[in-house]
Amino acid sequence: MLTTTVQGRTWNFSHAIGRNAAAGNGFTQPMSIVSFKDDSIYVLSRGGDGAGGVVQPNKRIGKVTIDEEFIGDFGHGDFTWPSSLAVDSRSHVYCTDEHTNTVIEYDPEGKKMGEWGDPGNKEGNLNMPSGIAFDSSDNLFVVDSGNNRIQKFTREGEFILTWGEAGSSEGQFSDPWGITVDQNSNVYVADWGNNRVQKFTPEGEFLLSYGVTFPEDMRLNHPSDVAVDSEGDVYVVDWGNKRVQIFDPEGEILTSLYGDAYEFSQWAKEVVESNPDALKAYRRVEDKSSLATFERPTSITIDSQDRIIVSESTRGRLQVYAKEKDYLDPQYNL
């Protein structure tokens, strides 16, 4: 469905960005995306580990515009298992590495400014740091997935506070992944192994769980990321079910997005046009749904215009949706 409509809200599929490519204008297993004020998006390509012992050029941070202009990439050789991106108010980019247990900082041009993080399970130590998100005061929340807790740091890496432990009760975690901070400074965590999203106050008081009380086909399966739009609707990347679940601010489910990229992105089009046999092959296929649907969605970001952007690791692609506010149902007797 190119247009998804419920209760006064509509999401229109806009376009796709990117293609599967190990360098340049494409992505390799994108794991994290973050939008950025001037219509730009940073895309983290996780890539493969290859033969080992050599820098894998497919692991990188790419910078693109929402209109699919390739600005450049950086970070080659800086990380082993890059996991998540966040941008602070100075437009510096931060990237976690869940193997080296570090947070790496870049300036807006991609110059490496430094890194911090010590392995371990003591206060302030990191064990497989995964999702990260800044609050409005430039404090960084880090999902410390191996320690099953959330830690809050200054952007320089000074420890502020922590909450959480292993388990499945409220406030406990099982290998958590993505994280976001909403306009009211509340914190949402994709509690991956517990098949839910938990919402907390900025101090870590438990508020709400998403996704646990629904009928089975609507439940979350290993959610990887979460984002909140300007109206407070909550978007959860339902990684295991390959969809995005949308909830209202009270935690009621609204609808799901499954991916709609029947059209090629600009970069993808160039590839198809240079391969006449590929064009023919596409024409031979009747059911093209596997082209359009999310193939292992990993992360989500929402820009200042409430455009919703989802990354898919298997396709090396981003899908962009636009939310229409105050939408009136059309006349159905067409």
Partner: peptide
């Protein structure tokens, strides 16, 4: 590789 390029490489 392909005669026509794909925008940044060849297939």
């Amino acid at each position: 590789r392909r005669v026509r390029d794909n925008g940044s490489g060849t297939d």
